[in-house]
């Protein structure tokens, strides 16, 4: 980039002594290629699934009931099941996750206790989903007698998404300028009043983004759900009924070779759902950064 004709002019820096053009070129080409490849893979995956699945995406497929184990008919119960399961898990995890984040940022200073909480959250984040599935099966399905049900699945998923929500909420709470808190306290507001009326509202866009992203992951989760929510093809009547979520349905269709065509259709629905969720998250985040740049002088 910088023009440097003579080699070895800079003593002590062996890098400058090497013939510099070649390794730089090759390296940069590789780096560019890997960025290109990464994006290409993404585009390929999304394009492949959408193109193959598009043919199947008819109202009858989306709003119809499955027949012959899903070989024919639609995926309506799975769409409903996925929606209810995901919403319920967010409804459980969001208050807990945001509450934990508020506790960590507003109610406690760095100490043994907060370190324990943080350790718990970080460790949870590293646990593979199949282990969550095993746990949910043992604890919710069997021990608490909830059976394979939306409730068991949601509780398991909630445990899984907790760390994400805690981390993103904590980040956005910490980015609220401390002077807001000082101002509220100086006006005689209590801690709870300060948190609810000044801190949380300023952090809302970031928190919402985190929750939406966690939701996006939950929509596509399979391993943790298959052992806790079951794989019933019927339309659930309540949260105590089992469901077969979209990814589970897709997995069964594809793996057992029931119907490749319907598998593609289900995958397309799944991808569209995930993309919509991601888009919503980035949209929210984008609006925050815009607002921040106005306020943050």
């Amino acid at each position: 980039m910088t023009p440097s004709s003579g080699s070895g002019r800079v003593s002590g820096l062996d890098v400058a002594r090497r013939p510099e053009r070649k390794p730089g070129r090759l390296g940069m080409a590789l780096v560019r290629a890997s960025a290109f490849l990464t994006v290409a893979v993404l585009v390929f995956i999304i394009g492949y699934v959408l193109v193959r699945g598009a043919r199947v995406l008819t109202p009858r497929f989306l709003l119809g009931f499955p027949e012959k184990m899903g070989r024919e008919g639609g995926i309506y119960p799975s769409i409903v099941g996925t929606f209810v399961l995901t919403s319920l898990s967010v409804a459980i995890a969001a208050p807990l996750g945001i509450g934990t984040a508020v506790f960590l940022t507003e109610y406690t200073s760095e100490g043994l206790f907060s370190r324990i909480v943080r350790f718990g959250t970080e460790s949870l984040a590293g646990i593979p989903s199949i282990i969550f599935g095993l746990f949910g099966f043992l604890f919710f399905v069997i021990r608490l007698g909830m059976g394979w049900s939306i409730l068991s699945g949601s509780l398991t998923l909630a445990a899984m998404m907790l760390p994400t929500i805690v981390r993103t909420s904590e980040e956005s709470l910490r980015s609220v300028p401390d002077i807001y808190r000082e101002t509220a306290y100086a006006l005689g507001a209590s801690r709870w009043q300060t948190v609810t009326s000044v801190v949380l509202p300023s952090a809302v866009p970031g928190i919402v983004t985190g929750v939406i992203l966690a939701m996006g992951r939950a929509v596509g989760e399979t391993a943790a759900v298959i052992f806790t929510a079951g794989s019933s093809l019927r339309l659930p009547g309540s949260i105590f009924d089992p469901v077969r979520t979209l990814p589970v349905h897709f997995y069964i269709l594809a793996r057992e070779g029931i119907s490749l065509e319907n598998a593609y259709g289900t995958a397309a629905v799944l991808i569209i759902a995930v993309l919509l969720v991601d888009f919503a998250a980035y949209y929210t985040l984008h609006r925050v950064s815009k607002r921040r740049s106005v306020t943050g002088r």
Partner: peptide, 29 residues
């Protein structure tokens, strides 16, 4: 101030969820 106290206790309990879940997972597995 009772509300304050309640909020503080509730948040402490909530903060412990992830630790509790971790402990439960380890215990059951």
């Amino acid at each position: 101030s009772r509300k304050e106290k309640f909020a503080e206790i509730a948040l402490t309990v909530v903060g412990l969820t992830s630790v509790a879940v971790l402990a439960l997972i380890i215990f059951f597995i």
